[in-house]
């Protein structure tokens, strides 16, 4: 299958999941009326539910999945490790810490953009720190180890804030954020994340050919003619923007960035450059589908998207880890 045809198929699949997420689910509105509402042909109530409640939620799930899938594919190419994703470099954990700080100190009083803003800022700080510690000559193994340290540190600070939470409401807010969800997200939330996603997308796609060369290792890529420091900078900064903006909208959602590239890789001849866009589309479709499924589940309390993603993603992660040879080599 050519990359173009694969991308078209996956894009169609993504569109289908978003439309299904808008049309299906909930007893209030039958699918036919919801579809009518989506395309301005139903009543006002149907239009509001379809266009302003369900569509942004389904779209947020798709875009967040896409951003995480793209980050994962790019970081895997850079680190030449099928288990890498924003989590490995500590970007997700730092980003979540930023959001948790905003919630804990109730910074939303200052501005509604404080929580998302801090999430993006901390993701960027994490990557800036990775860069400063590496100072341009760090090997990817060192980057991964620094990422493990960052993750633990951010996790400890997050736990500390939860430990010191002054009342059960703050604690409950923190826990809810950390579990990850796209419920009740609006177009305004998507609008805030969009510029970061777009910048991250452009940066990561520019790194595509370099990631292909990195199949040969860092020296192999450099002697083949790839500018490895530039590729590394583009991927790390791009992944930070993609991940930070995603955490800002939905909290921490793990494993999508690992599973989607793994599913897509055989269809792109294991080419690290051609892997990027299909991974984004596949991850978007998977997350939008996952969000639809948890909405349709007959539980009184809705399952959080981050929890559902981990329930499916973590076993997949273990399976991939057990099957891959020479991890970190």
């Amino acid at each position: 299958m050519t990359p173009l045809r694969l991308n078209l198929v996956l894009a169609a699949l993504g569109l289908l999941t978003v439309v299904a997420g808008t049309v299906l689910g909930g007893a209030v509105l039958p699918p036919g009326e919801a579809l009518a509402g989506l395309v301005f042909m139903g009543g006002e109530e149907a239009r509001i539910i379809a266009q302003e409640i369900r569509l942004p939620r389904a779209l947020a799930a798709f875009l967040i999945g896409g951003a995480l899938g793209l980050s994962g594919a790019a970081l895997q190419g850079l680190l030449r490790n099928p288990l890498a994703d924003p989590g490995v470099l500590g970007v997700s954990a730092m980003s979540a810490l930023g959001a948790v700080i905003a919630i804990y100190f109730n910074l939303a009083v200052i501005s509604v953009w404080m929580t998302p803003g801090l999430a993006v800022l901390f993701a960027l700080a994490a990557t800036a720190l990775l860069y400063a510690l590496g100072a341009g000559h760090a090997t990817t193994t060192q980057l991964v180890l620094v990422g493990v340290g960052l993750s633990s540190f951010a996790g400890a600070l997050t736990a500390l804030l939860m430990n010191l939470a002054p009342n059960p409401f703050t604690l409950s807010d923190l826990v809810n954020w950390l579990m990850g969800s796209v419920a009740n997200r609006s177009f305004a939330d998507i609008g805030f994340a969009a510029p970061f996603w777009l910048a991250g997308l452009v940066m990561v796609l520019c790194a595509g050919p370099g990631l292909r060369a990195l199949t040969l290792g860092e020296e192999g890529a450099a002697t083949a003619g790839a500018n490895v420091p530039r590729v590394r900078g583009l991927v790390i900064a791009g992944a930070a923007l993609l991940t930070g903006a995603s955490v800002a909208v939905a909290g921490a959602i793990g494993f999508v960035g690992i599973v989607a590239p793994h599913l897509v890789r055989p269809f792109v001849r294991h080419d690290a450059g051609d892997l990027l866009i299909p991974s984004a589309l596949a991850a978007g479709a998977v997350l939008a589908l996952a969000d639809l499924v948890i909405r349709l589940l007959p539980f009184t309390i809705e399952l959080k998207l981050g929890v559902a993603a981990a329930l499916v993603g973590a076993p997949a992660f273990i399976w991939i880890a057990a099957r891959s040879r020479g991890i970190g080599a």
């Binding site: 199949t215 040969l216 290792g217 020296e219 192999g220 002697t223």
Partner: peptide
Amino acid sequence: PQSRSSAWAIR
């Protein structure tokens, strides 16, 4: 180079 490795199962 001496090392003839490939990170991915490319053709």
